[in-house]
Amino acid sequence: MPMRNVQRVINHLLALAVSLIMFIPVYLVLVNSLKSKAEAAAMGAGLPTVLHWENFATVIEKGKLVTAFGNSVLYAVGATLIGTTVAALAAYVLSRNRTRFNRAIYFFLIMGIAMPTNFVTLMKVMQMTQLINTQIGIILLYSAMSIPFSVFLIYAFIGTLPRELDEAAIIDGCSPIRLFFSVIYPLLTPVLVTAGVLNLLGIWNEFLLPLYYLNSSAYWPMTLAVYNFFGQFQADWSLVSADIVLTILPVIIIYLFAQRFILSGMTAGSVKG
């Protein structure tokens, strides 16, 4: 049937066109990061005539990106480890022992998914706890921000693990802590990877909390460094592009390797399975 073939070709072209539009900004920063300052001035889509690899060296030095990269890794990894671990522990007892009280606590925790942050009074809390403008402060803050969604994801997953496992371990005289870490924890790997990757990317991309609570540029993560760099070098899109490429490269690599987990985590809870 030729009509159906025509339709299929149109569908493929349409999908291709949309994908191209979605890819344009990444393409733009990639090509412009290798252009000279003059060539990149208009941030055009053309390919660079000469490849200016030195842009990356310039930007790493001028944008203090080594420190910023280290900070981003520290915040993202630190907060993801703390956040997902405490969320898994909480989700586990709340899901296994569903008393009225525990169910209320569970709802109370996942209300945070909707709750907006009051940045002004949060600043007061950060000052009172002396966590403002400290790295541990921002790590704890990010851990806290990740808890509601992580608890939600992990709670649902624990509901699918058979209780008999726990009972056998308890009869064998396993302590609660050993039961969790040697029996349950390994079984949680898929959901922990999903929650972990989502948190990692979310924290890597965030820049509002450092903007409010980190004054020292030595503590700035990549995003804030880019923002500041843009403020200083707005006229030089080749350098800004190189800075952006270095910031999004880890994100894109993680995304390509973990897209299965990301796409599944994003749909969890939205679709009745």
Partner: peptide, 26 residues
């Protein structure tokens, strides 16, 4: 006994300190 409530204390403490208390102070 098998599922002690203190397991949830880490998450609750962080959540209370950085979410709930600022909102109430608001």
């Amino acid at each position: 006994r098998a599922y002690p409530f203190y397991f949830a204390s880490g998450a609750l403490a962080l959540y209370l300190l950085f979410y709930v208390i600022p909102s109430i102070m608001g």
